[in-house]
């Protein structure tokens, strides 16, 4: 029990530290929020303008909601992924990595703290964007199953946590370019997961790849609940692949990270210089 309390305290250290950093870097947070709101609005306005662009009558409200789900879900998952995958890059930048790695905590404890922060932060950030965007569009959510949508989002974030842990090993192994590599991973997921379009429009060879992305299932499930009001019980076909991906990706991520940490300690890459 005493050990559990120690681990919980240690996990909370990361949550508290990260929220303190958010508070101190408030200017950057404000810039990022403004950028995210503008970006979300720009994408969503494509739906509003589709009729004017094509000259063909389309269900603009449906299209707006379709794009908004894509951009909001992607924003949420990407923030979770970023916060986990970039934790090593942050520590390198602040030059604190050796002190964190010298502390008597397991990597699981560290990841737990980072993950709790990532999910809470992402929920708050996404909710603020949604609140602002809702002022610009009339969102008809009468048929939406919001409970089912929330369940889809939480289950989906589990798999992105695992992917984030796997990706976080890159800045550990490649001090100079590891952080950029995580952006490449994110860009590939953005392309293949049907964030702004159905995956059926992708080239045939790319469509099986889309089925390997957890984001595809989150987006399909979210659209089913919000656009079509699909009941929660009917979401199982979307949920089980996400649960499997999460259950597999998290332990694999921790295992890969442990290997990466050992390699970094053997080759002296934990600290870039000195």
């Amino acid at each position: 029990m005493a050990q559990l309390i120690r681990e919980i305290r240690a996990s909370y250290a990361f949550v508290e530290r990260n929220f303190n950093l958010v508070r101190r870097y408030w200017g950057w947070e404000l810039v990022w929020l403004a950028y995210s709101i503008a970006s979300t609005l720009s994408i969503t306005y494509i739906g509003a303008g589709m009729e004017a662009i094509t000259g063909v009558q389309v269900d603009s409200n449906y299209l707006i909601l379709y794009l908004l789900i894509g951009t909001m879900v992607w924003r949420f998952l990407a923030i979770v992924f970023d916060n986990i995958s970039e934790m090593i890059a942050w520590e390198r930048w602040e030059d604190t990595i050796e002190y964190t790695f010298m502390a008597p905590i397991t990597r699981f404890t560290q990841m737990m703290g980072q993950t709790v922060f990532a999910v809470i932060y992402s929920l708050i950030f996404t909710a603020v964007i949604l609140g602002v965007v809702a002022l610009f569009f009339h969102l008809d959510l009468r048929n939406a199953n919001l409970v089912g949508a929330a369940a889809m989002l939480l289950v989906g974030s589990l798999s992105f946590i695992g992917l984030g842990i796997v990706a976080s090993v890159l800045p550990l192994l490649f001090p100079e370019r590891g952080a950029q590599m995580t952006n490449v991973i994110q860009a590939v997921f953005l392309l293949i997961s049907g964030v702004y379009y159905p995956i059926e429009v992708l080239p045939a060879w790319m469509q099986p790849l889309a089925r390997l992305s957890p984001a595809t299932f989150v987006l399909e499930g979210m659209r089913a609940t919000i656009l079509n009001g699909a009941p929660t019980a009917s979401l199982w076909p979307y949920m089980w692949p996400l649960l499997v991906a999460g259950i597999v990706a998290v332990p694999i991520g921790l295992w890969v990270f442990r290997l990466g940490e050992r390699y970094a300690k053997r080759t002296g890459k934990l600290k870039r210089n000195g």
């Binding site: 120690r6 305290r9 909370y12 502390a103 905590i105």
Partner: peptide
């Protein structure tokens, strides 16, 4: 963490050590 205060930095360290 350069933007954090000594209290915030040391409290973070203390929590890591349980």
């Amino acid at each position: 963490f350069k933007k954090l205060t000594p209290m915030e930095n040391l409290l973070y360290g203390a929590r890591l050590y349980g």
